[in-house]
């Protein structure tokens, strides 16, 4: 009995993930290979369609831009937060956690109010006399990028604060007292030690952007279709489940490939493991 105690306790959760996640997702991917016209017909159709290729490239492009912006903003912010005195640090962490725990619909909706035709930004710009007519900011790639950066900066900050906190003040001061200027300290001491955290943050933000639905739906609409919104449209509007499954399979492959590549990179670049 004791030999199987571990399995007995772990089996309900194991079964749920196997039957509720692994099996259905595997079945979805499997059906994409079983269509008439050869095993890769659906993929040929996907990559043969100029529109779908554009959506895929746009999704990769938007996700990369969001990741880079979130990395820069998140890194600077996390560095300042990690060096802040205790009470201020707590307040700043609360200010970062609050948006993170607020749902994606609410946070995207906020940008709908700000960027709308009669939104805050347009009316402010008109009142200041900078523009005469309201600008079309919604349903552009820019609005999707801004809202996604907003969505993911807290995640990046919280991922990096822990990593940067672990760098002792003494190390930074030692670098300075040995004659390094602040730029050299940054590039040769702080940055290399933060690389594993930066990689984790980049993976979270890239995969999150790549597979997002609510933000591109609300702020991009039909004009800025991304993989998530295209998949939903194929599945629930045109009821082309084979096409939706193909998009699902491509999303799974790209997500897992990126996580694995970044894990390998993190292991290689981590200065502590050399």
């Amino acid at each position: 009995m004791k030999r199987f105690a571990g399995w007995t306790l772990a089996s309900p959760a194991t079964l749920l993930v196997l039957l509720g996640l692994v099996a259905p997702v595997a079945a979805t991917i499997y059906t994409t290979f079983g269509t008439p016209g050869g095993p890769f017909a659906t993929y040929q159709a996907f990559f043969g369609s100029g529109f779908r290729r554009t959506v895929l490239l746009r999704t990769i492009n938007v996700s990369l831009i969001v990741t880079v912006i979130a990395l820069v903003i998140g890194f600077i912010t996390a560095y300042v937060v990690s060096r802040a005195p205790g009470w201020l640090k707590s307040i700043l962490i609360i200010a970062a956690v609050f948006p993170l725990l607020t749902g994606v619909v609410v946070r995207s909706f906020a940008w709908l109010i700000i960027l709308g035709k009669n939104g805050i930004l347009n009316s402010t710009l008109i009142n200041l006399g900078i523009i005469g007519e309201p600008l079309q900011m919604l349903y552009t790639q820019g609005s999707v990028i801004v809202a996604m950066v907003y969505l993911f900066v807290p995640l990046m900050v919280l991922t990096l604060v822990g990593v940067l906190e672990a760098i002792p003040d003494d190390l930074i001061q030692a670098s300075a007292s040995l004659g390094a200027n602040s730029w050299a300290t940054f590039t040769q001491v702080i940055l290399p030690l933060a690389v594993p955290g930066l990689i984790v943050g980049a993976v979270l933000v890239f995969t999150g952007s790549f597979t997002s639905y609510a933000t591109p739906q609300l702020l991009g609409g039909e004009q800025v279709m991304m993989m998530g919104t295209l998949m939903y449209q194929q599945a629930m509007v045109t009821f082309d489940w084979v096409s939706a499954s193909t998009i699902a399979a491509i999303m799974v492959v790209i997500t897992i490939a990126i996580v694995m590549a970044m894990n390998a990179a993190a292991r290689r670049l981590n200065p502590m493991t050399v």
Partner: peptide
């Protein structure tokens, strides 16, 4: 692999899980 299995729900895109549950369940 058990601990990897329990991380899978984070790795697999939620949209794919939702669609697969609709289609296959």
């Amino acid at each position: 692999w058990l601990s990897t299995l329990f991380v899978l729900p984070v790795l697999v895109p939620e949209l794919v899980l939702g669609f697969s549950l609709l289609k296959n369940l």
